[in-house]
């Protein structure tokens, strides 16, 4: 049943979702490519480990981009149903209401994971083409990408709840943009604030408590939002 639901949801996915999944990590790495090509010598002089420094650089805006991506993807998923008024139809299908959301969530998380993997691949390609050698820091890059993904989970569920729960996507988008901006300024914030977690301030390859906070909060928020969404009356 779950498989059928996911297949049906996949058919409804807008092309823009796939475009974002590829374009955002590509664009971000592309920006660093420009940055490096403009002032290569200066940047190489800043750090001994070229590869590690490259990863740090590409990571700077990655949390913000990831939050924007997930905000937009989730909103696109929700608006397909809101704008065509098909929630009622979905919920009258002979499936558990929770599964309808879980199916969407599964696709959204998969898109984000693929995007994260692409981000690692693109970064490797950039390093290689800058001539940093074939000793690829795959482990470090994967850790960076994975930890960021986990730390960003709470935002996935906030956006999921806002986008699916309210027909007005303006609220969800504004909140998502606010979160994305806030992350850029969260360096000085106390540790317990979720905006700080994806920044991986303890080092991009260090398993810091932040990551576990992200995971824990993410799981708690999933449960709460799914419970709320499935109990809510469906009217449109």
């Amino acid at each position: 049943m779950m498989r059928a639901l996911i297949q049906s949801d996949l058919m409804k996915v807008k092309k823009m979702v796939w475009v974002m999944m590829i374009a955002f990590p590509a664009g971000l790495v592309g920006l660093q490519a420009v940055n490096y090509s403009l002032r290569l010598d200066h940047l190489l002089g800043l750090h001994d480990d070229y590869w590690y420094f490259l990863l740090e650089n590409v990571h700077i805006f990655w949390p913000t981009i990831l939050v924007l991506t997930l905000t937009l993807i989730i909103s696109l998923f929700a608006s397909v149903e809101h704008e065509t008024h098909t929630w009622t139809k979905l919920f009258s299908l002979p499936v558990n209401n929770g599964k309808i959301y879980l199916s969407k969530l599964a696709i959204i998380l998969t898109v984000l994971i693929v995007s994260s993997v692409l981000f690692v691949i693109f970064s490797m390609i950039l390093g290689l083409s800058l001539g940093f050698g074939s000793d690829l820091p795959l482990m470090a890059a994967s850790q960076m990408s994975l930890y960021t993904f986990i730390a960003v989970l709470p935002f996935v569920f906030i956006q999921f709840w806002l986008s699916m729960g309210f027909t007005n996507q303006g609220i969800a988008l504004t909140t998502g943009i606010a979160n994305a901006v806030f992350i850029m300024y969260a360096v000085d914030m106390p540790t317990w604030l979720p905006w700080r977690w994806p920044l991986l301030l303890e080092g991009i390859t260090t398993i810091a408590p932040d990551i576990f906070y992200g995971l824990g909060t993410g799981v708690v928020l999933t449960v709460i939002s799914l419970i709320h969404l499935t109990r809510k009356d469906v009217t449109a």
């Binding site: 823009m16 475009v19 664009g27 920006l31 940055n35 991506t69 937009l72 996507q169 988008l173």
Partner: peptide, 20 residues
């Protein structure tokens, strides 16, 4: 575009490079 997020997708793609 009929989808609400549509214009913002394009916007993010165009705005982000602006930071650099």
């Amino acid at each position: 575009l009929t989808s609400f997020a549509g214009p913002s997708v394009v916007n993010v793609m165009l705005t982000f490079p602006a930071v650099i």
